[in-house]
């Protein structure tokens, strides 16, 4: 009996060991796939154009700084200008989106008023309408009023962000005790001060996560900016990257192209390297009620 038992448990142990090895292998392959393209990008951006035109090699090219210098000072693409434009748009969008979403969520969460339910249902309903549906009218109005090439036109629509609102509303429900608002009222604080000085600090984790997400989505946004920003000095990074694609490759420095791509994704990668934990946490709490 005991012998049979122990042999069974040994068999189970061996099985578990094999399963574990397979699981690690499976994860390892997927992790390697994700890393492959970034390793290749780094490697290729270290090669000179002639190295890239020549035979394939996995050796470090040694022209990284030279490519960086060439890409940064390329007058026809003007990537520094693009990065500044992208930064202005992404940073302002992130600030505006999170602040006004939190404000709206707070307004609906703490106050009792007549259309409370109706308004909440309405915001939930418009949440999934794709941005492209309003694009035609938006572009037409922008051209009509001469507002193309105005960066603020890409920023202000962020004030109404149903998805961020929904996230903030859920967060408020889980963290904000209404007694705290009452106490602040008794202290004589105005409603605006209560929001800015009591509620907003409590919401810091939610605000931080949503700021990152809206910064990233705005930094990466290509569709609308490409239709609105026609002047070279107003272009954002994604537009510049897409334009590289239409360049004539026989005359192009490919080392520089890889460097442009690296520069385009670098800011987001740096933020991610520091904050990956809270970003990953934010992925689930936004979409699924935990």
């Amino acid at each position: 009996m005991t012998i049979a038992n122990s042999s069974r448990s040994r068999k189970a142990k061996a099985q578990l060991f094999i399963l574990r090895v397979l699981a690690y292998l499976f994860i390892g392959i997927l992790v390697a796939m994700c890393l492959f393209f970034f390793v290749m990008l780094l490697l290729m951006s270290s090669k000179s154009n002639s190295q890239l035109q020549g035979a394939f090699s996995l050796k470090w090219g040694g022209h990284f700084l030279e490519n960086l210098h060439n890409a940064w000072n390329d007058a026809s693409t003007n990537i520094p200008r693009g990065m500044v434009n992208s930064f202005i748009v992404a940073m302002s969008s992130a600030l505006i989106t999170t602040y006004f979403s939190a404000l709206t969520a707070y307004g609906i969460h703490v106050y009792e008023f007549r259309f409370k339910r109706a308004i909440f249902t309405f915001i939930m309903a418009i949440m999934m309408i794709p941005a492209q549906v309003s694009a035609v009218g938006f572009i037409q109005l922008a051209y009509k009023f001469g507002l193309t090439n105005k960066l603020w036109l890409l920023i202000l629509p962020g004030m109404a962000a149903p998805v961020v609102f929904f996230y903030m509303k859920q967060y408020l429900e889980s963290v904000l005790p209404l007694e705290m608002v009452e106490a602040a009222r008794i202290d004589g604080s105005s409603e605006f001060r209560i929001f800015n000085e009591v509620v907003l600090p409590i919401m810091k984790p939610a605000v931080a996560v949503q700021m990152i997400f809206s910064f990233v989505s705005s930094w990466n946004n290509y569709f609308m900016p490409s239709l609105l920003l026609t002047k070279p000095e107003k272009r954002t990074v994604p537009i510049m990257i897409a334009m590289l694609r239409s360049a004539d490759y026989s005359k192009f420095d490919m080392g520089k192209v890889f460097m442009f791509i690296l520069l385009a994704i670098l800011p987001v990668m740096l933020v991610y390297a520091v904050l990956s934990k809270s970003i990953i946490k934010g992925v689930t709490s936004g979409s699924v009620k935990g």
């Binding site: 707070y106 307004g107 609906i108 308004i119 418009i126 309003s134 035609v136 009218g137 629509p157 109404a160």
Partner: peptide, 24 residues
């Protein structure tokens, strides 16, 4: 105050989303 707090959201929504959608 509820209305004051949610007005920016709706003004922005109407100007930059709803009107363009209807125009579309």
């Amino acid at each position: 105050w509820a209305y004051i707090f949610i007005i920016p959201f709706f003004v922005s929504y109407i100007l930059f989303t709803l009107v363009p959608q209807l125009l579309t």
